[in-house]
C-alpha cells in the first residue's frame, strides 16, 4: 500500500470557515462530491503538509442503490482507525488534521456520513466549533476513530467484538465519552464490557430482554444513567486504579438493578 503525507488545514483557512458559517453551509449543501468551493471562501493556502505519513486509504461510499448505512459507517470507522492509529495523539486530536480529512481527503464520504441537515451541523461536526474536547468526540470522522480506539480489545481473539457492540447502538459509548474520565481507556472499555455482559445476560431471558430494550429508551435511559453512576462511583474513589474486574462487576450490578426497576414502571 502506498504512503502519503498527512496535512493540516491552515489556521487562517479553518478560522475563516468557522466565521463564515452561513456561506460555508450553503456551499456544502450544493457540493456533495467536491470541496473545491472552499477557495471561494478562503483564497490563501488551504493545507500544509506535515512530516507524518499514513497508508493511502479510501472509505466505502453509498451509491444510488445503497445508502450510507450503519454497517458502512462501522466498516469506515475500522478503516480510519487502522490507517491512523499509529499517529501521535497530539495529531489525532488536532482540529486542523481532521479538517484536512473531512474537507479534502475524505470529503465525499464525510458528506455522506454527516450530511448538512441544520445550521449547526458544520460548526459542531465538521470543525471543533464546540471546543477541543467536544470536537474530538463530535467530529465526523474523529469520533469514529475514537469510538474504535476506546472499544478495541487487543487481548481478545476478535478485537472488534466490543466495537461492533457499540456500533449496534452508539448510545452505548456516546454518553461515556462526554466525561473527563473517558480519557481513561481502561475505564471506558470496562464499562462497555459490562454493558455487553448485561446485554448478553438479558438477551438469554425473554422477559429480561424486553426490560433491557425498555431501559434503552427515553431521555434518562440505561446509558445516560450509567455514565452518571460511574461519575458518582468515582466521586471519592481514585477511579483510575479500579481493576477491570471490579469495574465490570460494579457497572454490571448497577445495570441489572436499573433494568429490573423497569419491571415496576
Amino acid at each position: 500500500m502506498s504512503k502519503i503525507h498527512i496535512h493540516y488545514m491552515t489556521d487562517e483557512a479553518i478560522e475563516t470557515l468557522k466565521k463564515n458559517q452561513k456561506k460555508v453551509t450553503e456551499y456544502m449543501k450544493a457540493n456533495q462530491n467536491n470541496s473545491s468551493w472552499i477557495s471561494n471562501v478562503y483564497s490563501g493556502d488551504l493545507y500544509t503538509e506535515k512530516k507524518f505519513m499514513i497508508d493511502d486509504f479510501s472509505l466505502r461510499l453509498a451509491s444510488s442503490s445503497n445508502k450510507y448505512t450503519e454497517e458502512v459507517g462501522y466498516e469506515n470507522a475500522i478503516t480510519i482507525y487502522e490507517a491512523l492509529k499509529d499517529l501521535p495523539a497530539y495529531v489525532l486530536t488536532d482540529e486542523r488534521f481532521w479538517a484536512w480529512i473531512n474537507f479534502d481527503y475524505c470529503y465525499k464520504a464525510a458528506m455522506q456520513a454527516m450530511p448538512i441537515t441544520s445550521k449547526s451541523t458544520f460548526i459542531n461536526h465538521w470543525v471543533f466549533g464546540a471546543g477541543q474536547r467536544r470536537g474530538v468526540f463530535f467530529g465526523v470522522f474523529s469520533r469514529e476513530f475514537y469510538r474504535v480506539a476506546l472499544s478495541v480489545d487487543n487481548q481478545s481473539p476478535d478485537k472488534y467484538e466490543y466495537t461492533k457492540f457499540v456500533y449496534d447502538n452508539p448510545e452505548r459509548i456516546r454518553n461515556l465519552t462526554w466525561r473527563a474520565n473517558s480519557s481513561n481507556r481502561k475505564l471506558v472499555l470496562s464499562a462497555i464490557k459490562a454493558e455487553k455482559k448485561a446485554f448478553d445476560y438479558c438477551d438469554s431471558i425473554p422477559e429480561m430482554s424486553e426490560l433491557y430494550k425498555k431501559a434503552e429508551r427515553g431521555q434518562y435511559n440505561l446509558y445516560t444513567e450509567l455514565a452518571k453512576y460511574i461519575s458518582l462511583y468515582g466521586s471519592v474513589r481514585l477511579i483510575d486504579v479500579v481493576s477491570e474486574e471490579d469495574m465490570i462487576d460494579e457497572i454490571y450490578s448497577e445495570m441489572i438493578r436499573f433494568i429490573n426497576e423497569k419491571r415496576e414502571n
Binding site: 495523539a89 497530539y90 489525532l92 486530536t93 477541543q132 474536547r133 474530538v136 475514537y146 473527563a180 474520565n181 473517558s182 480519557s183 481513561n184 481514585l238 483510575d240 486504579v241
Partner: peptide, 15 residues
Amino acid sequence: VKLLVECSPTVFREN
C-alpha cells in the same frame, strides 16, 4: 500513592 497525569485535549490519562 499514584501520580495521575491527565491531558484532556489529547484524551490521555495515565497513573
